[in-house]
Design a protein around this nucleic acid. Structure first.
Lengths: 218, 218
DNA sequence: CGTAGTTTTGAGAGGCGTCAAGGAGCGTGG
DNA sequence: CCACGCTCCTTGACGCCTCTCAAAACTACG
């Protein structure tokens, strides 16, 4: 991040608190008072919003190094649930301290702004996915995004374990779990991937890219 | 915003520059260097992202008082287009000056964070709309949101002029323009609204709310 | 080894997209 | 002032993609 030792020391005091979250439990729920941002140290989360009539929508999946909780700043209360999909640990970063240090260190301030901007840009690409892609394209884009983020963390480029159910994938991608399952099966038939429950092996990355972006070579 | 006179004075220097944008032209385009945030003073904008293969998705409509450009912070380049849907004027707020003043004034700093958080929360509700609502629900939610924002600016609670085409509404809501038009017609048949081209009169707000939220009274 | 949760697969229905044609509104120029 | 063309909007017919409902298979876990 380009911080000097002094800055690093100050930062350490902010993120001194850790918190463990067991699989299936919430880091926070809709309506909870907002106090802190959370950096995922280990484990895997989903965030989801819920309507009055019980429908819900997974708005994102977060893995190691990603930040959760920015939804709470605007109204001082969280507007979504953050659920651990496996046993997880987060760094608790009290937001008033983050703001205090941001005033002191330009680098940190800009970093905070970038993190929020990145979330906005990510959300826009999900809107594009939900608004204009068909089922196959959505799932292909999802798999490519997931494996790319895992690869950036030192994992395989071609193999991954899904931490979420078909239903959660479907909720994120705006499709029913049966459609998710069928689309997986279709990719398997075409020889693009191998699937064994939560395990996925991407045999042909280019084929997936082709599906997402049919005519990129005009 | 709760700023004192000194703070107001400083702030004025940041937003001294104005810029006029003619209808149909861009405030910025994808790939443009990011320098500033823009506050809409008058007029109406859309922001949209584009894929390599030419599909695009309207990610939002912005009216007076709303802020455009936060997508550019993360990579120093804009990741979407901002197009004026009618002749418009914006305040140009150079982002380095915004950051500088934010370090000085806690109130402003927190305000900036809130604006970005609000955008994130808004995006999440659009994801919910795109991911789990049917055409009627989407259009009803869209009309209610639009008229509510207009009412907050002193306009009517029941009448509005659409600044965007059916196609742009459809792109935002993830449906084709024909479906938008048919859904408008359906609402008219049911006596919920009156439509005359871009003019819309909401005759029964509760009916629209009922459509968005069918079972909120369980 | 039984049970609950998850996933797969099938059959049928329906909502929305696609294609196509016609109509209305608006700006421009004769 | 009116005609013309352009853009935008509406409506119909048809087909496909995805949802819904249902049943069965598989896995994990106690």
């Amino acid at each position: 991040m380009g911080l000097n030792p002094e800055e690093m020391g100050k930062l350490d005091t902010v993120i001194s608190t850790r918190r463990r979250i067991k699989r299936g439990t919430a880091l926070f729920n809709t309506g909870d008072k907002f106090t802190s941002l959370y950096a995922v140290r280990s484990g895997f989360f989903k965030t989801c919003v819920t309507t009055a009539d019980g429908r819900d929508q997974v708005t994102g999946f977060q893995m190691t190094g990603e930040i959760i909780g920015m939804d709470g700043i605007v109204s001082d209360r969280h507007s979504c649930d953050a659920i651990a999909l496996e046993d997880a640990e987060v760094c608790v970063m009290p937001f008033d301290q983050v703001e205090e240090l941001s005033r002191e260190f330009t680098t940190l301030q800009h970093h905070v702004h970038k993190i929020m901007s990145r979330e906005i840009v990510r959300d826009h690409s999900v809107m594009l996915l939900l608004g204009s892609m068909r089922a196959e394209e959505r799932l292909a884009a999802f798999l490519l995004n997931l494996v790319q983020r895992l690869h950036a963390r030192g994992f395989s480029q071609s193999e991954l374990i899904l931490r979420m159910t078909r239903e959660e994938i479907g909720s994120y991608l705006g499709m029913k779990l049966e459609t998710v399952s069928r689309t997986f099966s279709k990719f398997v038939e075409e020889g693009t991937i191998e699937v064994k429950q939560r395990y996925v092996h991407i045999k042909n990355t280019d084929a997936l890219k082709q599906i997402v972006n049919p005519q990129s070579c005009r």
